[in-house]
Simulated assay, not measured.
Amino acid sequence: MTTPASASRWRDICHNALWKQNPGLVQLLGLCPVLAISNTAVNALALGLATTLVTTLSGSAVAAARQWIPNDIRNPVFIIIIATLVTCVDLAMNAWLHGLYLVLGIFIPLITTNCIVLARAEAFASRNSVRAAALDGLMMGLGLTLVLLLLGGLREILGKGTLFDGAHLLLGEAGHALVLHLVPAEAHYQFLLAMLPPGGFIGLALLIAAKNWLDERARQRATRNASQPAPTTSRVASTE
């Protein structure tokens, strides 16, 4: 049975991973895939989901085995666990999503060295229960995926005038129906800056600026609410 205290803890884990300590916008971890693969929404989504799967499973595995891992060798053991899971994901994508596997290339094996995965294993999973570590890994991965998807969609729209181009690589032939052509294909539109690495830096900076602006608005609203005097109620005695 879920108690109010445990429910509050789950909410804190989700809020911390998705917003307060978002790995892509706040911690600025895993910038290599964020900037290199986020040139289209589909590429960004695929790598984000692969990373989410690894962070969830690695967090659960580390939390389950933490009492048997000597403190002096915990980091090498964590890396072995992560590398094993990444190898499984890499082989699965090569077998079932080969076209997408060729597009993502080296960035799938590089999940092993992604700072997000190892950082959560060290900072959270090695100190918490399996359920909490699994939820933290899932939310951290989804937080990164959302950043990748937003950045990839923004760069694809500005750079190619399309959205979800290449969805068939992830979803099969049905993915062709999801492609949106915001600029007619015959126009041969292309904005190269958005598709190159500088476009990734600029797009990420815009997303970070937007988050900071929303956080500042929330702080100002909280300050105004705190400075307002509490409403007072007056009781009027009634006489018969």
Rank of each mutant, 00 (worst) to 15 (best):
L207C: 09
I106V: 11
Y101F: 09
H168E: 09
A63W: 04
F78C: 04
T40F: 05
S227F: 01
F201Q: 10
T52G: 04
R217P: 05
R9T: 07
V147T: 15
A177H: 03
A218Q: 14
L196M: 10
D12V: 12
G159T: 02
M140Q: 09
L142A: 04
I80C: 07
D165N: 12
N43E: 05
K20D: 14
R120C: 05
M195L: 15
V117T: 03
G159N: 01
L135R: 14
G153W: 02
P4R: 11
L207T: 06
G24A: 08
R224A: 15
I69F: 07
P198Q: 10
K211M: 09
R235W: 10
G161R: 00
T56H: 00
H176T: 15
L28D: 11
F191T: 01
P70Y: 06
L47F: 08
A65Y: 02
L35M: 10
L18G: 08
A125W: 00
G137F: 01
L102G: 02
V103N: 09
G59N: 10
L29A: 05
T84I: 14
L193S: 10
D12W: 09
A119G: 09
M1N: 02
A218H: 14
L151I: 11
V54T: 08
M195Q: 10
Q228N: 09
L149Q: 02
V77K: 07
L57V: 14
N39E: 05
E240Q: 02
A230P: 00
E122T: 11
P197E: 08
F78N: 04
Q190Y: 07
V183S: 03
N71Q: 14
G59Y: 00
I116F: 01
A41E: 00
E186A: 14
C32L: 03
R131C: 05
S126D: 11
R74I: 09
L144A: 06
N212P: 15
